[in-house]
């Protein structure tokens, strides 16, 4: 399989700030790759390094095998969907979409036809004559997508593209983006701070923290088998057990992660105190204190919810307790 984007020891420092610090990535052709992390973790800088808006302080970037060193953004076969969409306010929707083709020197009739097709692809046929200011947020997002895709990029970069949309629209766009990516077979690199978005859309996810990648893997791996406490906490708000407790429970000295939905309240198990509970729709979230270690349990609908201050017993299946690599 061809490698679409390869980072080898890439760093980008801004003065004393290590925005990206020794990152290695290999993104395969046709892959839907998500970069997930809190703000300031370096994921957007990585995207800008691929686009060519930033140059690495150290390390090498190759796009389809060709070194990207010194190649300006306008010479890269990579297009970006910007977080604020960055539609040109003085151009109509169709001219926005056809911009890249106009720059490439395509004749007017041809690029208009291509732009119309791209608008149809994102379910906005007939919107060509409008100005961006006349569109809703979701429509602008689609125009931005069409404007990037019409150039048939080898890699499409998406910078938190759904961040400004409301929940319902966001879920709809997630599915559409995924379907579009499968249909076109273009490599998508998607930056987000929303773990649900990353897990549901991507083929593989890279979790960023403080300029470094802390784990790369398929969504299931990231979710069920976090390698470091940060991933367990950030990706699924797992309960993280310190090495002491893990050693007492399993004999292995390392951090361990336990998913809230795997925690059972019953007659057996470890003693814990209920701190409080909150109803979250499909389940009830119960905050517990187990020997000074805070824990979250998700109780399915219909299960009795204990009062705050009550003494309960918690248990879980052994296979649900994921012990992390002690060296990670």
């Amino acid at each position: 399989m061809t490698t679409a984007v390869r980072f080898t020891g890439v760093s980008r420092h801004f003065g004393s700030v290590r925005a990206v610090d020794g990152v290695d990535i290999e993104i395969a052709e046709g892959e839907f790759f998500a970069m997930l992390g809190p703000s300031g973790s370096g994921k957007t800088t990585c995207l800008r390094l691929i686009a060519g808006f930033e140059q690495p302080t150290a390390g090498e970037i190759a796009i389809f095998g060709e070194p990207a060193q010194g190649v300006p953004p306008y010479k890269r076969h990579v297009n970006t969907v910007f977080q604020d969409y960055a539609l040109f306010p003085h151009l109509s929707v169709i001219d926005n979409v056809a911009y890249g083709l106009m720059i490439a020197g395509q004749p007017k009739a041809q690029r208009r036809r291509a732009a119309e097709e791209a608008l149809e692809m994102v379910a906005l046929p007939g919107y060509g004559t409008r100005k961006p200011s006349e569109l809703s947020g979701g429509q602008r997002q689609r125009v931005a997508l069409a404007r990037a895709l019409v150039n048939r990029p080898k890699v499409l970069l998406l910078d938190e593209p759904l961040g400004a949309l409301d929940l319902k629209l966001r879920e709809q766009m997630q599915e559409e983006l995924k379907a579009l990516q499968r249909k076109l077979g273009i490599t998508f690199v998607f930056v987000t701070h929303d773990q649900g978005e990353a897990l549901s859309m991507a083929d593989r996810v890279a979790v960023f923290n403080e300029g470094r990648i802390v784990q790369v893997g398929q969504p299931q791996d990231i979710y069920y088998r976090p390698e470091v406490p940060f991933v367990a906490d950030f990706v699924g708000s797992s309960n993280v057990f310190p090495p002491d407790l893990t050693e007492r429970l399993t004999g292995k000295r390392a951090h361990a992660a336990l998913r809230p939905e795997a925690v059972r309240l019953g007659a057996e198990g470890h003693g814990a105190t209920v701190r409080g509970s909150s109803f979250i729709g499909t389940a009830t979230k119960v905050a517990l204190d187990m020997d000074g270690i805070p824990m979250i349990a998700l109780l399915p609908k219909g299960a009795p919810v204990p009062e705050a201050g009550a003494q309960v017993r918690v248990s879980w299946a052994d296979e649900d307790l994921h012990v992390m690599d002690p060296n990670a």
């Binding site: 306008y74 990579v78 910007f82 977080q83 911009y99 990037a148």
Partner: peptide
């Protein structure tokens, strides 16, 4: 003019001069 407009133009293949001509100047 938001900075991402200029980056968007570069991203879509326009060099600095074309960006000035097609994006900055009209704005």
């Amino acid at each position: 003019i938001s900075g991402s407009l200029i980056e968007a133009s570069l991203d879509l293949g326009a060099d600095s001069f074309q960006t000035f001509r097609h994006v900055i100047l009209p704005n």
